[in-house]
């Protein structure tokens, strides 16, 4: 792989460590009412795996790789799109209670 960035050894470990702390800090102070939407939201975020599957599929050289890559992109896209829709629908309900002003705008 000849990408311009190389993320080997300790650089990769630093990324993992900082990302782990970030995730911990974000969830640490969340009220219980948001646990379900946040689980769904983080479920959406790992849908980014679709990008990796795209890379694998576009670089496929054999039929087997193409089939597995196809499944990977299919599943990854489902993870991302489904995670988004479900999370958005849940969070839609967390609108402020003054619905009247909302309707008036429409």
């Amino acid at each position: 792989m000849d990408l311009t960035t190389t993320l080997t050894g300790f650089v990769a470990l630093y990324i993992f460590m900082l990302a782990a702390f970030t995730g911990y800090e974000i969830i640490g102070r969340v009220p219980a009412i948001l646990h379900t939407p946040l689980m769904s939201g983080s479920n959406f975020v790992h849908g980014i795996v679709v990008v990796g599957a795209m890379y694998a599929l576009l670089n496929a050289t054999s039929t087997v790789e193409q089939v597995i890559g196809f499944i990977g992109v299919l599943l990854g896209a489902g993870n991302a799109a489904g995670g988004y829709v479900v999370t958005e629908r849940m969070l839609e309900m967390f609108k402020p209670s003054d619905k009247k002003s909302d309707n008036a705008k429409k």
């Binding site: 993320l7 990324i15 782990a20």
Partner: peptide, 22 residues
Amino acid sequence: YVLQNPALMIAGMVVGSAGTLL
């Protein structure tokens, strides 16, 4: 990490730790 893709590394690990805490 295997694909050398930082977006996957960061998003994956953030969810990994956030999900563990959850």
